[in-house]
């Protein structure tokens, strides 16, 4: 019977479930930002990329479901989200590499521009229901319906998890990964090696934006599964902090995303068992946590381990 209460067990379950559900956009956006920052540029505009991804995914899924059917349509939406993200990424990649143009400023302008475009074109898609991505039931072993529905794993989560070792391998062991790191760590050396800094960074930013766009698709086609203008609520910006938290390591991006996703469930889960004060402060937990960890782990004597050397410097 679905009416069985879990009581206090609901808190860890809620956090576990919230982790699986809520971490997907964080994971994809932070992996994208990790790739971008490894090349020596920051893209704060991923908040806008997330919005345009969410909108395009929902719109394409809705519009194409009549043509290709409701099974294929959300996947077309995911693809559209990635492509829309790449479009914004190309603008950022080109503009932020012009002389004297600051990448943080371009990023904030891109938040406004991307968000504006998403809201402008997204109006007709707020109300209709678009076909959602399927989920994989990982909780079939349990007889508790709460456990079953908590353990609904999105294929996009698996995609993100699969990208983690791939990206790690890419940075460590491939020629292209070496190029990205060289460009990010010491552009002069990279230039001496004959690498085109512009095109490597462009590729890293566009690739990162593709992942962020898919992160947007996970918001509108998996969880919470709607398109509204407030859907991203700062998650794109948070992902930028998350990458620093994760020390530019894909594996640590995974752990950090799980932590941030779980932290989102903290406030509601505590309220549901009667801890109902201070929910604004609970909701701010991820921010406080990130700041505290940054304070503990940073040192004035050396730059952060793993920090790309050219990050935050003018090109």
């Amino acid at each position: 019977m679905a009416t069985e209460a879990l009581g206090w067990w609901g808190v860890p379950l809620g956090i576990l479930a919230g982790t699986l559900r809520g971490s997907v956009p964080f994971l994809l956006v932070s992996l994208g930002e990790c790739l971008t920052e490894k090349s020596g540029k920051i893209n704060l505009g991923l908040e806008g990329t997330l919005l345009i991804g969410a909108m395009s995914a929902y719109a394409i899924s809705y519009l194409s479901s009549g043509i290709v059917g409701p099974t294929l349509a959300p996947w077309l939406g995911v693809l559209a989200a990635g492509l829309a993200g790449m479009g914004l990424g190309a603008i950022h990649g080109w503009l932020s590499q012009q002389p004297r143009v600051n990448d943080v400023a371009v990023g904030i302008a891109m938040i406004i521009f991307g968000g504006g475009l998403a809201n402008f074109f997204g109006k007709p898609f707020i109300q209709p229901q678009a076909p959602q991505l399927p989920t994989l039931p990982a909780g079939g072993w349990s007889s508790l319906p709460q456990v079953q529905s908590a353990l609904q794993v999105s294929p996009l989560f698996l995609l993100g998890v699969a990208i983690v070792p791939l990206m790690s391998w890419f940075f460590k062991s491939t020629r292209w990964g070496l190029y990205v790191r060289a460009v990010g760590d010491s552009p002069d050396a990279a230039r001496a090696m004959g690498i085109s800094i512009f095109w490597v960074r462009m590729a890293a930013i566009v690739g990162g934006s593709f992942l962020a766009g898919i992160g947007g698709a996970s918001l509108s086609l998996f969880y919470p599964g709607v398109w509204t203008e407030r859907i991203s609520s700062g998650q794109g910006l948070m992902a930028v902090a998350l990458v620093i938290f994760a020390r530019w390591q894909p594996w640590q991006c995974l752990w950090a995303s799980l932590l941030f996703g779980g932290a989102q469930a903290l406030g509601p889960a505590f309220q549901s068992v009667g801890i109902d004060s201070y929910y604004y402060l609970f909701n701010a937990a991820p921010y406080i946590l990130t700041l505290v960890i940054m304070i503990i782990t940073c040192s004035p004597k050396r730059t952060l381990a793993g920090a790309p050397g050219a990050l935050g410097k003018d090109s």
Binding site: A109, G115, L117, F120
Partner: peptide, 15 residues
């Protein structure tokens, strides 16, 4: 949302 698009274009151009 039009005014957001407008703002975005102005800032990107000036940058």
């Amino acid at each position: 949302a039009t005014v957001l698009v407008f703002q975005g274009i102005v800032f990107l151009c000036v940058l």
